[in-house]
Design a protein around this nucleic acid. Structure first.
Lengths: 226, 226
DNA sequence: CGACTGCTTGATGTTGCTCAACGTGCGTGG
DNA sequence: CCACGCACGTTGAGCAACATCAAGCAGTCG
């Protein structure tokens, strides 16, 4: 909601994405790079999706309001597009994206983006690959999580932060208990209880948002068995 | 498992998909159209995904075996690709596809398909649109169903068959109670009980697989409220 | 200080799974 | 042809997992 800084580093953002120098130059005039603070909304659901958003770095949650309840779909980190399918399906943002940590985001003009897809087959293939990967990952998550109880989903999430996001067994949770609940389909009370149980069983140490995983193997076991 | 009839109607299958006459001719030599009976496997998970599968008509379920349990992801009808992301992500089938009704499926050579994407921007954009639509639909389903209890998910499924598949309030369920359970994450007992409850409350009439929806509004309400 | 937000903990009710029993239809092999 | 196994379907009882409701505590901000 505060002033956001505009930058010009689109080149480094999309290097290695099969764009020619000319194409990148063309993009430069049709893009902006913006800083977001935690809690700031990057994409708002139910708005028109006229720009493509590419997360350069930081941490972002994708979420939506469903029948009055907030539901978080996933947490994603840098170097990927966010909510890209909304751009191509019907130019309408079906989901929101909000920074959970300080994040840099490139906004690219959708018209230019579409033009590149039609003119540059390698670029188009790159997008197709990204969309496919995201879809497969998502479906895997879905089948995995559906078969799990709350305890398994929370264990999975703790490991996700440790492995995929912070690359360390010690980290600060970037989200509240309520948001964890939105993410794993549980209430904030259940999240609280489960984390307390993990602490009592000496699997993790947790103080407010500071987490230390003390028994990774066991947490993994819980995560897999559900 | 029986003999499958090979056909040559690739042209009508992919007409209107932005392919030139030459390209379609090229495809003709690299494709086959096959009939599947209910229960026959179209795509088997954990195999290499060297061909693209396009459902011409019929009804197909996408499913996977997760930790020993069968989980159905979705039911799809004709005129769309099935499991396309597996082809582009890593050439590896992450999910299975099985006919639940008599279905006609085109198999297309992946190499030729990829070539078209790189050479024909309109075709590539068409694929991107399809993938995006499928992704958005899938995410919507996910957020919808996660917030629902079994009763709401089953109500939703009954309406899905009525509206999206059979376009009628009377139809025959194409799948067993067990498969409904696999689809809505419930046991066959819970499915059975819920359907019996619906019948007792005069919302539906059900005899074996024959379903008549008698109170669509109420079913809709249950579906939405969860 | 008081209001507020985020978190925790306990008591209680509901949901839905598991287990068990039983009926039905179908295909297979003696 | 009948006997048997087997998948499917239904129903009941008991139990575990969670949500809900309620109360209270710690930190923060005006």
């Amino acid at each position: 909601m505060q002033a956001k800084e505009k930058k010009n580093c689109i080149y480094e953002s999309l290097a290695g994405r099969n764009l020619s120098k000319d194409e990148i130059c063309e993009l430069k005039g049709n893009c902006s790079v913006v800083d977001f603070q935690p809690g700031e909304i990057i994409i708002k659901e139910n708005t028109l999706a006229k720009t493509v958003a590419y997360i350069k770095n930081g941490l972002v949650k994708v979420h939506a309001l469903v029948h009055g309840k907030e539901k978080t779909l996933r947490i994603i980190k840098g170097n990927q597009y966010v909510c890209l399918p909304s751009n191509f399906f019907d130019n309408f943002n079906h989901f929101s994206a909000t920074a959970v940590e300080k994040s840099e985001v490139c906004f690219l003009d959708l018209t230019v983006f579409k033009k590149f897809i039609k003119e540059n087959g390698a670029f188009a293939y790159d997008i197709i690959h990204d969309l496919s990967k995201s879809q497969v990952t998502n479906l895997h998550n879905q089948v995995e999580n559906n078969n799990k109880k709350t305890i398994g989903r929370i264990a999975h999430l703790l490991l996700f932060f440790a492995r995929d996001i912070y690359d360390s067994l010690e980290y600060c949770l970037p989200i509240s208990r309520q948001e964890i609940g939105d993410l794993v389909s549980a209430t904030r009370e259940s999240v609280s209880r489960t984390l307390a149980d993990f602490q009592n069983d000496n699997i993790i140490e947790i103080d407010r948002k500071k987490v230390i995983i003390k028994n990774e193997k066991f947490l993994e076991e819980i995560s897999v068995k559900g």
